[in-house]
Amino acid sequence: MNNELDQLFESPEEWLNALPKYQRNLVSRLIENNHGDLDEATALYLNLNTSHTAPFGAGSKKSIFVDKVKKEFHNFICGHEKYSEERQKFIGEIKPLHTTVVSGVSAAIAASIGASAVYLAPIIVMLFMSMTSIGKNVWCELYSDDNEAEM
């Protein structure tokens, strides 16, 4: 990813500001109630409402949905050619802001997982927060294809 985007990975909390207030408040409470455990907060978010997901993402298969979101997020952030055009839009056409990046990533991967971009936005924010906490390169390595079973 371009150095221009590195500024986005300085503070995990900044990602929350990319969400509308109603989602920001919900995600903040989920994170706080789970002592900062972003994976648990994501799981609880999915339990709140699954009406905007494709059939494979609802019910007992929610972990498959989360795994698919993480995989597509990884592909987007860590350089998979599938998303090269979308990444270039961020790098070449705009000065990326947290809101723009969250919206763009959510929209780019929504079709691949059968969910609306609005529904995905809080999940994408929590993934960015997780990545920012440990660093983009470490996150990409942790969630690489070699470690896919752990996703």
Rank of each mutant, 00 (worst) to 15 (best):
K70Q: 08
K70V: 15
K71G: 03
H74W: 08
H74E: 04
N75Y: 15
N75I: 14
N75C: 15
F76C: 04
F76L: 10
C78F: 13
C78V: 12
H80M: 03
H80T: 10
E81W: 14
E81A: 09
E81C: 04
E81M: 10
S84G: 09
S84V: 12
S84P: 05
E85I: 15
E85K: 11
E86V: 13
R87V: 08
R87F: 05
R87G: 03
R87D: 03
Q88V: 12
Q88D: 15
K89W: 15
I91V: 14
G92N: 14
K95V: 14
K95H: 11
K95P: 01
P96T: 11
L97P: 02
L97T: 13
H98E: 12
H98S: 11
H98D: 03
H98Q: 12
T99N: 10
T100P: 03
V101Y: 00
V101S: 00
V102R: 00
S103Q: 12
S103H: 13
G104F: 01
V105Q: 00
S106D: 05
A107P: 07
A108P: 02
A108F: 01
A108G: 04
I109T: 01
I109E: 00
A111T: 15
A111Q: 12
S112Y: 06
S112H: 12
S112L: 03
G114R: 02
G114E: 08
G114I: 13
G114P: 07
A115F: 04
A115G: 07
S116M: 09
A117P: 09
